[in-house]
């Protein structure tokens, strides 16, 4: 419900602002790379219609996380419409394949409409899909040593019981008068 309302308001304001200021639509080309210590992300901002580079566009860079986008840098484009930002390689990937999604976002800019562009970086820092909980006291599967000790103790005790019962059986077997057994 709240979502819808926001959406409507957003729609209206977008329409009004577009009409009033006649902002341009932007086209951002993202170039991604990395040096030894940093990821680099370069954005080239052009006018979508004329393809001319746009100067003075403030861009914020983000990386995609599970529950939101995390800011990693920002800046304003130069005369060639280019802006470069760096963020550390230590920022981990966003999925188990090592894909890191970088975003370039334009917000409340005088030159162009709000826009957002996305590119995927293949990082080496991926994390495993599964890190099984190690067999141990807290896990579902018992550790080997416990299984061994447990079943050894159980076997020893119940084995002794079985032997005691076997002795009882032998008591019966060593009776001379067998008449009692079959009745």
């Amino acid at each position: 419900m709240a979502n819808k309302k926001n959406l409507l308001i957003a729609l209206l304001t977008a329409g009004i602002s577009a009409m009033a200021q006649e902002k341009k639509d932007g086209l951002i080309t993202l170039q991604l790379g990395a040096n030894d210590t940093m990821h680099t992300v370069t954005a080239q901002v052009n006018d979508l219609a004329t393809k001319a580079p746009l100067k003075g566009v403030e861009i914020t860079f983000y990386v995609q996380r599970t529950f939101g986008v995390m800011k990693v840098g920002n800046g304003t484009t130069d005369t060639t419409g280019v802006i470069t930002a760096e963020f550390p390689l230590s920022i981990p990937a966003g999925d188990t394949l090592g894909n890191l999604i970088a975003l370039a976002k334009v917000e409340d800019n005088a030159v162009i409409n709000d826009t957002i562009f996305r590119a995927t970086i293949k990082t080496k820092l991926s994390f495993p899909a599964h890190t099984p909980v190690k067999a141990g006291l807290i896990s579902s599967t018992p550790p080997l040593w416990l299984q061994l000790v447990f079943w050894l103790v159980v076997a020893m005790v119940w084995g002794s019981f079985a032997y005691a019962l076997y002795l009882v059986y032998r008591i019966k077997a060593s009776a001379s008068k067998k008449i009692f057994i079959n009745q």
Binding site: L27, D95, L103, N113, F117, R118
Partner: peptide, 25 residues
């Protein structure tokens, strides 16, 4: 945050403003 689609863990719309869409890398 709201933009995430209902049944995805992470989803984000790609290039929007003028309908153009470029995915550089």
């Amino acid at each position: 945050r709201r933009n995430f689609l209902k049944n995805s863990i992470a989803a984000l719309t790609t290039g929007l403003a003028g309908g153009a869409l470029i995915d550089a890398f």
